Amino acid sequence: MKCLLSIDWDYFIHTKKENWNSYLENDKNTVKLWYKRYIQSKAQGKDIKKFFLLSSEIIVFWNKVKEYFQFEKNTKILVSDSHALSYNIAKENNCNTVYLFDAHADLGYGGLSALDFEVNCANWLGQLLKDKIVKRAYIIYSPFTVEKPEYFKHMNSVYNIKYRRLKELGKGINVSVIHICRSGAWTPPWLDNRFYQFISASGIPYEIVNCPPRKWDTKNISFSDAIYYMMA
């Protein structure tokens, strides 16, 4: 059994602004829109950083994970912004099982018809199951998720999908490859340094595939910058 361990950075982030999320992953939503939100919040006398809280679980996560997962000698981490890359990673590494740590199931939203679209960050796991690239998926939801397994009743009846907590997994799960995504449309840029610290804390070699740096400098926003960002 070849296993993909896929981790979304939003697993660790509690947001009080769920409606700020976006399913579109582009420069507008991963960078510019965050500046727009900052400007809007400041105008209302609010600190945008207080809407996004980073879980202390990042400190102990790797130690806990290594109690249940075993990493092969050549196992490495692939880092990207979009979670959609997990589809290609699983396919290219002949993985038949996915373990997903995420605030979202990424099975596709709106029933099986969501899998009629191209692979994207919201349906990549459903696409892997539909295309029979993987046989089973284990979803370990973030404690901050607003989703419930019953939201995916139809998919759960068609595909081999299990919802588990980490402590409910069996031990000795062999991992072939790890994917960690930033999900910049969901996670704020001022936490990017913590994101890379989290990856380094794994002690596993990693390769950045497609995760462009995001500059976050709110002290030097000019009037023209503000207009530009507000048009996002």
Rank of each mutant, 00 (worst) to 15 (best):
K130M: 05
S41Q: 05
E25Y: 13
S55C: 06
G170Y: 14
A90F: 01
T30C: 04
D225F: 01
A185V: 06
K130Y: 04
G110E: 02
I161P: 08
K49R: 06
I48W: 13
K46M: 11
M231Q: 08
P149M: 13
Y229K: 13
D131W: 08
Y68W: 04
F144D: 06
W124L: 14
F51E: 12
S183N: 09
F152V: 04
L112P: 02
W216P: 08
Y23M: 14
K130L: 00
W216Y: 06
N94K: 13
I48V: 11
C95L: 03
G45T: 12
K135S: 15
N29S: 01
K46Q: 12
P205D: 11
K162I: 08
L4G: 12
D225L: 03
Y35M: 03
C121Y: 09
I140A: 15
C181H: 00
D217N: 10
N93M: 07
Y138N: 15
E57S: 14
A103N: 12
N123T: 10
E67I: 00
Y35R: 04
R214L: 05
Y151Q: 09
C3I: 08
Y206V: 02
P213D: 01
S200D: 08
T15Q: 07
P212T: 07
L24R: 12
Y68E: 00
P213N: 05
T97C: 07
I77A: 01
E25A: 14
N120A: 03
S86R: 14
E147F: 10
I140L: 15
K76I: 09
W186A: 06
K42L: 08
R165Q: 12
N220K: 05
E207W: 10
